[in-house]
């Protein structure tokens, strides 16, 4: 059964505010999500407590139409989840991507870069051993 992520937010006449647990959602995910709203909102980050980030999204419209703020809150929460996925895919594929780009732009192996078999073997070993990127652990319980 699909798990759910729960977000709480407050809403006033012109803004919505979330308090986000940094242990669950990294700062990079929070910045990444917030940044995508700079065309529609004024954004303010604050830290109400250790490991917590408050994100306030204030509509650029002085009197946002009914329902827009709740929709905005929904979009932000959704984007936050997407950002987490993006970062985790980026992290866990970093060495594969670096290999591909190096190979694409700097040509053939000069003997110093690992070949692809070594790289994949290394990745497997890492994943089985200490799993530094925690890619085997479902992200929500990985903290």
């Amino acid at each position: 059964m699909a798990e759910t992520a729960t977000f709480h937010y407050d809403v006033d006449a012109r803004s919505v505010g979330f308090v986000i647990d940094e242990e669950l959602y990294s700062l990079d995910a929070i910045y990444g999500a917030a940044y995508l709203f700079v065309d529609r909102c004024w954004l303010f980050l604050d830290r109400p407590a250790d490991k917590q980030v408050q994100v306030r999204l204030r509509s650029k419209e002085a009197e946002p139409a009914g329902g827009t703020l709740d929709a905005l809150a929904g979009e932000f929460a959704n984007e936050l989840l997407n950002q987490v996925l993006r970062l985790r895919i980026g992290d866990s594929t970093r060495s594969l991507r670096e290999y591909t780009l190096a190979r694409a732009f700097f040509g053939d192996d000069d003997g110093e870069r690992p070949n692809i078999d070594d790289l994949l073997a290394e990745l497997d070993a890492e994943e089985l051993a200490d799993d530094p990127l925690e890619i085997q652990v479902p992200w929500d319980t990985g903290s």
Binding site: Y31, G32, A34, Y35, V38, W42, L43, F44, L45, R58, K60
Partner: peptide
């Protein structure tokens, strides 16, 4: 009128 708001967005952008 929204100078401080725009400024805060700009700092967020630069930080990101």
């Amino acid at each position: 009128p929204e100078l401080l708001d725009a400024f805060a967005n700009h700092v967020l952008f630069e930080t990101a």
